[in-house]
Amino acid sequence: MKLIENNNLVNSLCEITNAATSAALNAVMASLASRHGVRSAAYLGAGMSGASNREPYLAVTYSPNWVEHYKDRGYVKIDPVIQTGMRRLLPLDWDEFGKLEGALKTFFGEAAEFGLGRRGLTIPVHGRRGDRALFSVTSDLSEREWEQEKIEYMRDFQLLAVHLHDKVLELEGEPVLRAKLTPRELECLQWISDGKTAWECSVILGLSEHTVRCYLESCRYKLNASSNTHAVSIAYQTGLFSQIV
């Protein structure tokens, strides 16, 4: 675990939280892409309740020309990212498609002409009510650099994907009601607010350090916090700590 908080991630999560309109979210996508050093970033959400007849929600940094071209050609029918990603759990590295032939070769060739990177990674999101989303980034890194960066940033991408999805649900008028903190989670967060480290919490509470980290991870998500510090401040603002006697 890093000692210094991952500022890029924290900043991106804050921006997502603060986005109040879909236009603002589009701007967030652009700043997120440049901050995380990727060529493009794209969010596509589908299956939100009552939205079966609605177009999928799209927030992308792609050029409008590519989006238009993609729609004109009906590429959604052959786009392997969409065709496979929606029924996957593991992140999908576009290299898995192997050597491209025929229509797919044309498709990815055109995508590159419109400014997408040669390598891509897609994170599937599974929502509570059958809603699904895909968060994709592309890059022009060499294979070796890509393999390294991918592993290093996978956690960040997982977090960004779900936070983007929850934000879109909120913008679409179907906000996710995050669960309340459990007594154990609150207890860990309280010790963090007293300046203790996860290791110190583990000693105090008689838990493994890993379990404390798991509780804190769950705290951050449930409070929609970008970091432990942020989670503590939200807990103070919403009076969570005053419930503990």
Binding site: G127, Q158, A179, Y221, K222
Partner: peptide, 27 residues
């Protein structure tokens, strides 16, 4: 299964976690 979607501990075995189940993209 991801804990952001439907999963067993929260949706079937909630009796085991009376204070609530964990939830995160990283769990």
């Amino acid at each position: 299964l991801p804990t952001t979607g439907p999963y067993m501990l929260r949706d079937v075995f909630s009796v085991l976690v009376p204070g609530g189940a964990p939830e995160s993209p990283l769990i």
